[in-house]
Structure formats: C-alpha cells, structure tokens
C-alpha cells in the first residue's frame, strides 16, 4: 500500500513539473500569437501595407473601428534606431574599457569592488534614470546648447547609454576572462606589452563575447520605454540633429495605448508597433546564437 502511494506521488510530481515546463512554452507561444493576432490587424482588417507602416511618416490613425487613417510609423522607428544607435556609440567604448580594466588591468579591484558596483547598477529601475534625466540632463542640455527645450535624441541616447553600460560591461568581462591564459603567457613571452597583449591577442579571441554583449545592450535599449519617453520630447517629427526632440516606438505605446479604443485603427497600429518590438527582440536572440555558434566554429576552422 505504501509503495503504491510512493509511485503515485512520483508520477504526480513528475507530471506536475512537466506541466509547468510545458506551460512556459504555451505562455511564450501565446504571447507571440496574441501579438501577431492583434498586430496584424493593421494589415488585414484595415488594409494598410507593410511598406506604408515601415517607411511612411504619415501617422494619423483613426481612433475607431471605421479605419481610413494612415499608419506610417517611420518617425517612431527612426527615433528608436537613432537613440539606440547613439546609446551604443556612447556606451560601447566605455564598457569595453571598463571590462578590460576589470579583467586585465586590475582584477583585484575588479572582482572586489568594480563588479559588485556594476551589478548594483544593473538593478536601478529605469524610471529613476528617466526622472534624473528629465530633471538634470534635459535642462543641462538646454542650457549648454542654448536650446528652447532640452528634450532630444542626445538626452535619450545618454540615458540609454548609462542603462546599458552595466549589461555590456558584465558580458564582455566574462568573455575576456574566458580567454585562455596560455595566449597571454605566449604573447608576454615574446616581449609584448600589456596593451599589445590586450589589443592583439585577448580582444580578438573574445570577439564573439564582445558582440554578444553589445547586442544584449542594444536589445535592452530597444525595449526600454519609460526612461526614454521621459526625455525624448515625444514630438512627432524626424530628428534633424541629435539635439532635436523626436519620439520612438516604446514612448508611443506607453503614452497612447491607454486612451485608444480597443480594436480601433489607432489601437491596432500601436499593437503593430509592439509586434515589431517583439520581432526585433527575436532577431537579436537569433543574432546572438549565430555569433556564439560561429565563434565555436572559428576555433577549429581557418579564418
């Protein structure tokens, strides 16, 4: 009798835990399915072309199910791409330098002090970055460049750069640390200076990890909503310089979704933006897999 209950228990828990695993798959598929279902409405129900959505800057969707407006999201897309690109441009050199400092120049300070500090700052809520950006950075940019408003691509880029810095730094640090010590010994043995070892041997060997870190930072920047929305100005126009305000995908969703009618053209167009964000994050995962996979092959094959 006792044995029977033991086996019953075994099967019960095995089943339950497997169900949980399965549930995660279902959940992910459900998220994807709902996004596709809601987001594709722009193209099916309201008959807009994908080309219009991606490349037209004429954005005036109707907030009802009648349709007939226009859904060109190019301004939002350009806004997202330019702020993220700028953030990457600012953050990458700093991140690489910090990662090299942590792993090659002063590993002791790195592990005991620098690393925990960086990890601490991964956890800072994005609204705090946004708030500080709004109250400190935006006025500073306004005064520094003598502008009417400080809301700008630059402000968004800087806020995003500070946010993704810890992400890139920790991934790159791990990549540098996993470069075999033998390479370093060999190069030092030939009379290389530390910088030559870093630049010519360690960084090339850590390349896949470096790119993975950069892509992960980019992914984080792309998905960030509120911090950017607070400093970008939310002005629906293409940015003419890095000092001009614009808007982006996440800011549009965050500020307009609540007021729009469910199922209306406006609402559906916002869902299409969410779908686009989802697809971009899938693309980033795909790229990371490609890089990591290729990095493994490169070791055995010729370059």
């Amino acid at each position: 009798m006792k044995e029977k209950s033991l086996f019953w228990k075994e099967h019960f828990w095995h089943g339950l835990i497997s169900c949980c695993g399965l549930f995660v798959i279902v959940l992910t598929l459900a998220i994807g399915a709902f996004l596709v279902y809601k987001g594709s409405g722009t193209f099916t129900t309201y008959g807009h072309s994908i080309f219009e959505f991606l490349f037209s800057s004429d954005w005036s969707p109707v907030d009802s199910s009648k349709g007939g407006g226009s859904v060109g999201a190019a301004i939002f897309i350009v806004g997202s791409v330019s702020t993220c690109g700028l953030a990457l441009l600012i953050a990458t050199p700093f991140s690489l330098a910090a990662a090299i400092f942590m792993s090659e120049i002063s590993p002791k300070l790195g592990t005991r002090f620098f690393r925990p500090a960086v990890e601490l700052f991964v956890g800072i809520p994005s609204v705090i970055y946004g708030w500080v950006g709004l109250t400190t950075l935006v006025p500073a940019i306004r005064d520094l460049f003598d502008l009417n408003v400080g809301y700008s691509v630059l402000a968004a880029g800087i806020v995003l750069a500070i946010m993704i810095f810890p992400t890139i730094t920790s991934v790159v640090t791990d990549a540098i640390k996993s470069v075999p010590n033998d390479y370093r010994k060999a190069a030092y043995g030939l009379g290389a200076t530390r910088w030559q070892v870093i630049y010519q041997i360690v960084m090339p060997a850590a390349k896949p990890g470096v790119f993975t870190g950069i892509i992960m930072g980019l992914a984080r920047a792309f998905g960030e909503a509120l911090a950017v929305a607070m400093v970008i100005g939310r002005m629906r126009a293409f940015p003419t310089s890095i000092l001009s305000p614009t808007t982006n995908l996440t800011a549009a969703i965050a500020s307009d979704m609540g007021g729009s009618m469910d199922g209306g053209e406006y609402n559906t167009a916002l869902w299409t933006m969410a779908l686009l964000l989802f697809l971009i994050s899938l693309l980033f995962i795909f790229i990371i897999h490609r890089i990591v996979g290729k990095g493994g092959v490169e070791k055995n094959e010729s370059k």
């Binding site: 959940l27 998220i31 998905g223 909503a225 969703i253 989802f278 994050s281 995962i285």
Partner: peptide, 15 residues
C-alpha cells in the same frame, strides 16, 4: 522560450 521571455521588452509584456 525562456530566452525569448527574458529578452521581451517589458512594455510588450505589459500589453
């Protein structure tokens, strides 16, 4: 799936 979930923008999850 787990990797996808972890890289989802939080605004998308909110939606």
């Amino acid at each position: 799936c787990i990797e996808t979930l972890s890289s989802l923008p939080s605004i998308v999850v909110g939606l």
